[in-house]
């Protein structure tokens, strides 16, 4: 009985993670841009690197999101020379975008640093 429960674990974790990851892309894009201005491919590799591969994003999805962020003025870009071909768009957070990210962190991420919750997060049996 116990071993059949354990065999369910990877499947359950996958299902939970796939729900959990929905809605996370914005946070990771904003964090990538807070680090420093980046062009699309740099954002993609940066996110995959800092999340140790748990968050993967396709370029099309990044472009779609960046278009929305540009439209609502939380992101802007500078054109810089690429190695070859046309100039690259280096995206960066605007003041509004940075403030939005900070408020989001204060309300949703800081919670994990409350001692009581932190103790539970790192509790081992």
């Amino acid at each position: 009985m116990k071993s059949s429960n354990k065999s369910l674990l990877p499947e359950l974790l996958d299902a939970w993670e796939s729900t959990y990851k929905k809605g996370q892309l914005t946070l990771w894009i904003f964090l990538a841009l807070r680090d420093e201005p980046k062009y699309v491919d740099e954002i993609r590799t940066y996110i995959e690197h800092i999340t140790a591969g748990t968050i993967k994003c396709e370029e099309q999805s990044l472009y779609r999101n960046l278009r929305k962020y540009l439209h609502i003025k939380v992101v802007s870009f500078d054109l810089r020379k690429g190695n070859k071909g046309p100039d690259r768009k280096y995206y960066k957070l605007t003041t509004l975008g940075d403030e939005l990210l900070q408020r989001f962190i204060d309300r949703n991420i800081q919670l994990f640093y409350v001692p009581e919750i932190k103790k539970l997060l790192f509790k081992t049996n």
Partner: peptide
């Protein structure tokens, strides 16, 4: 909507 964009599709 926020700035004419669908609120539900703004942040993914």
């Amino acid at each position: 909507a926020i700035a004419s964009l669908d609120k539900d599709e703004l942040f993914e």
